[in-house]
Design a binder for these strands. Sequence first.
DNA 1: CCCAGCAAGTTCAATGAAAGGACTAACTCA
DNA 2: TGAGTTAGTCCTTTCATTGAACTTGCTGGG
Lengths: 166, 166
Amino acid sequence: MQRTSFAEMHCSIGQSLERIGEWWTPLIVRDIHLGLHRFDDIAENLGISRNLLTRRLESLVADGIVERRAYQERPPRHEYHLTEAGREFVPVLMALMAWGDKWATPPGGPPVRLVHDACGAEFTPRVCCSACGEPVNTATVTALPGPGAAAGPGTTVLARRSGLAP
Amino acid sequence: MQRTSFAEMHCSIGQSLERIGEWWTPLIVRDIHLGLHRFDDIAENLGISRNLLTRRLESLVADGIVERRAYQERPPRHEYHLTEAGREFVPVLMALMAWGDKWATPPGGPPVRLVHDACGAEFTPRVCCSACGEPVNTATVTALPGPGAAAGPGTTVLARRSGLAP
DNA sequence: CCCAGCAAGTTCAATGAAAGGACTAACTCA
DNA sequence: TGAGTTAGTCCTTTCATTGAACTTGCTGGG
């Protein structure tokens, strides 16, 4: 059946997943980021079905994560590039990669090393506090209801627990 | 058709997605982290089909992200808790949430505020360099082939481009 | 004692998304 | 003229997802 959409959820994770949470989508963004801009390159690299790649690229473009850019007129040919939103998503992918390196190491060891050009070091991405710069973890972070908190699909029980409308 | 598995990919993102990339799975982890430990609570909160929740929880337990803990004997009843791997995944979810807050704000504004207990500030998660602590972005990070880099499903073209075996 | 209720699932049919391979369009280059 | 490139579309098969009903084992109230 059609997948349940997360679009109506009062949850930014749900909203994010609606845009980049589908199967293949994060890998497509990874490929574009790593320099694969042509349809056939991405299709061959991932081994994704071509019709599915068409659909995924369409929705990424519709959501403003990827930009479809003509690089010649006749015949019309296009390249795919990340937008600002797409580029800002890449660090999330790096954090995901770091988690995978630690808890789900691929056969043969980590396939990618990351170098931070600004400081020159090979590094591991970490999620940090924007205020003090320290790494965050479940023990040191508290989640509080924000302005958009509400009972709705995806947050019924949570809203009840935090004292919002049942 | 059955989803193509990313398990054989030489890519930590693929490995991560294989474990937590399926539809619903990140939201299930979110719910458990936020204190929903019972099957019925999670099912009601998300509105997920109960058989699907069963399957997702099974695979999360099999992958060592969630732990199934008996809290009474007769009748047998269980609670779900995050393991160490699961807790370390939560910051990735926070980064994903921050991206959604910025680029896909849910109706009504950000539904959750995060407070870093260590410094007391309300903050935005950022992905930073483990060496110098500065936030990373696409412009300041270079990806290099690591020990596990290889041509294979999910990385054929990339491996060719970076000079590995065709 | 009987019935309602809870918790944690399991079973089932209907539907539509994914896979994969063949096909098309429009052009270029030798 | 024929092969190659690029970016898709079309089609069939197969399986995951949905939603709702059903099951099991026990507790607590009247």
